[in-house]
Design a protein around this nucleic acid. Structure first.
Length: 634
DNA sequence: GTAGGGTTAG
């Protein structure tokens, strides 16, 4: 195809087309031609310029390299592939190879047109190559995600005796995805004396934080005397993506103090930081700065995700409705957001709207759709979407989709069927699948299968405390105390400690943290009183403390006492004390909410006529009027 | 003529 295009441009007809542009003088002199061509390039009139160039061929006339360079630039600007090839051909017709810098321009042109094969052909035919030629190729390979190939070129370049420069390194760093290769390239950079270059540094920070160790990235950042905006963005993005939202926001503030203005990239990372750490109020503050970039799709998608992950679907929906442009990520974010917040039917309706607008779903969209089905118990729909994925949308189901089906069957109580389905999977099993099954076993009280699933998880992740605790709770639920004791012993043997439960809530501009059994909050007395008052009120409507969620073999009274001070209860009491008007009380948790606190929150929401939103590490629970959005499947 | 930072699941 490409070859045909190439030839067709050389047919007499094509030549005629290029030369048929009316010209004042049908037989211009050489110097007129040159003058013309240079002027047309200057005026950015591509078609006339190419026509003049073709006319010059007949008169065996050639322009100067600078003019050709502008002509190539013009082709790139207009994305004029055929014209670009014609210029290349014209230069070859001269009989002598083009000047090195012109060949490099052509190389760069092919790369920008995504014609890598043409670029490679030209590169291979070049009699002489310099650092620019090599760097152009390496950079192209990195963008094509051909990392090994990029490294091969770096080595070949060394062999030819060409020294890489800062351009080469900042491109090639992106091809390093292991700490070991990063170190060796970093060494080369130091040897070449290029460590101080800001471009090289920002690449180092970026790749260290993505593929190696954020600590090294921070070190590279910290040592810098002069930093630019991209360097700041690299480090802020590094922390935001690795989940340390606090550090990311701290650096965000440092950056502003250093006199830099946040751009789209900074704000996207800022939002990501709020998303990861569930800081809704901070997210809203970042939103204010986002307003001036209301056409930036990536930034709006990040905003959407922030509101979804912080459990504020009303605000997410407002952003979604106002977006001037939506892509598959916007739709997928909103679909998953609705599903994760217990609004599966709306999620599926949105999926229909998405298809109606002609946006094609991708792999992740289908994870969201299947998640919605499993969480709403829509077994038939789930199977339908799963089975039709490949046929209708051309997406082969992957591990995550299979996981959703296990969840779908598990929630519906079809545990054996779920286990059989796991056996038919062609993937290597990971802990996520088993954890899904374990969750289903807990709800449907199948302790035998639960033990099997838990053991499979612990084979893969022997230090996973959540699994030990879940298993122990399941045994406790069936009053199998000796098994409970065995689990606890296994935990001790593995050196696994139960991480203390922690909940946090924003009141005013402060985040208040509550830790189970920790009474150091300055307002603890009134919180305790409020908690007692709440327990009193919900006991009137039928609350009975569900002590099976206490690990220790204590007397019932002691168990109740231990439950009473679960961190989320303290946070709820504090939230009720400080709640204003109809605003939801929003609480975040480090561990999954226990069944007793779940019941407590449902009733507290009812008697206080409030909405309580609790985000645990897995999902959201919106408590309102005595029911929870998760349908009691936590 | 060659280089760096941002978005969706689990």
């Amino acid at each position: 195809m490409k070859l045909r295009q190439w030839r067709s441009i050389r047919t007499p007809k094509e030549k005629l087309r290029f030369s048929s542009t009316p010209q004042r003088n049908p037989n211009p002199t050489h110097s007129q031609c040159l003058e013309n061509l240079s002027q047309l390039c200057h005026q950015k009139d591509l078609s006339k310029a190419v026509a003049t160039m073709v006319a010059m061929e007949d008169q065996h006339c050639r322009a100067d390299p600078i003019t050709y360079s502008s002509l190539i630039k013009l082709c790139i600007e207009n994305h004029a592939v055929n014209e670009g090839r014609r210029v290349h051909q014209h230069l070859l017709d001269d009989g002598r190879p083009p000047k090195l810098f012109l060949s490099n321009s052509l190389l760069s042109m092919y790369v920008k047109f995504n014609l890598f094969d043409d670029a490679r052909r030209l590169f291979d035919e070049m009699p002489e190559r310099n650092v620019v030629s090599w760097t152009t190729m390496i950079s192209a390979l990195v963008h094509l995600d051909s990392r090994e190939e990029a490294m091969k070129y770096l080595i070949a370049m060394h062999r030819e005796g060409i020294r890489p420069n800062m351009y080469t390194f900042s491109a090639v760093l992106r091809a390093c995805q292991t700490l070991r290769t990063l170190w060796s390239i970093h060494c080369c950079i130091i040897k070449c004396g290029l460590e101080l270059d800001v471009f090289v540094r920002s690449s180092l920070i970026d790749v260290y934080s993505k593929y190696g160790d954020l600590e090294y990235g921070y070190q590279v950042f910290d040592e810098m005397a002069t930093r630019d905006l991209v360097v700041w963005n690299s480090i802020i993005g590094g922390f935001a993506q690795s989940g340390d939202g606090y550090k990311a926001l701290e650096l965000f503030i440092d950056m502003k103090r250093a006199g830099f203005l946040a751009n789209q990239s900074t704000l996207t990372s800022g939002l990501r930081a709020c998303t990861g750490t569930v800081m809704l109020e901070m997210g809203r503050q970042v939103h204010v700065h986002v307003l001036k970039y209301d056409r930036d799709l990536i930034l709006n998608n990040a905003l959407l995700d922030m509101y979804c992950k912080c459990g504020s679907l009303a605000e997410a929906n407002a952003v979604f409705q106002r977006m001037k442009e939506r892509d598959v990520i916007s739709w997928s974010t909103m679909i998953s957001g609705l599903a994760q917040n217990g609004r599966s039917i709306e999620a599926l309706r949105l999926f229909d709207s998405m298809k109606a607008t002609g946006t094609k779903p991708n792999y992740i969209t289908m994870v969201g759709v299947l998640f919605a089905c499993s969480h709403a118990g829509l077994v038939e729909d789930g199977w339908y979407y799963f089975n039709s994925m490949a046929k209708v949308f051309g997406i082969e189901p992957g591990r995550e989709h299979y996981g959703c089906i296990v969840d779908l069957l598990g929630r519906a109580g079809k545990l054996e069927e779920a286990l059989n389905f796991i056996d038919t999977m062609g993937f290597q099993l990971d802990s996520v699948i088993w954890r899904t099954l374990l969750g289903a076993c807990r709800v449907h009280r199948n302790s035998g299968l639960a033990a099997h699933a838990a053991k499979e998880i612990l084979k893969l992740e022997p230090e996973d405390e959540g699994t030990y605790i879940l298993l122990s709770n399941i045994y406790a639920d069936s009053r199998r105390w000796s098994d409970v004791e065995q689990v606890r012993k296994a935990m001790r043997d593995q050196g696994v400690r139960k991480e203390p439960g922690r909940s946090w809530i924003d009141v005013g501009k402060k985040t208040h943290v509550f830790i189970v059994g920790d009474f150091s909050h300055p307002e603890m007395n009134s919180i305790s009183k409020e908690l007692n008052r709440l327990i009193g009120r919900i006991t009137e409507v039928g609350y009975v403390p569900d002590v099976k969620f206490v690990l220790h073999d204590l007397e019932r009274e002691q168990k109740e006492e231990s439950l009473r001070y679960h961190s989320e209860k303290l946070a709820i009491a504090f939230g009720v004390m400080n709640s204003m008007g109809g605003k939801p009380i929003r609480i975040m948790k480090n561990l999954r909410i226990c069944g007793d606190c779940h019941e407590f929150a449902k009733l507290a929401a009812k008697v206080e006529n409030k909405t309580i939103v609790i985000r645990d590490p897995v999902r959201f629970h919106h408590f309102q009027d005595g029911i929870c959005s998760c349908g009691d499947y936590w």
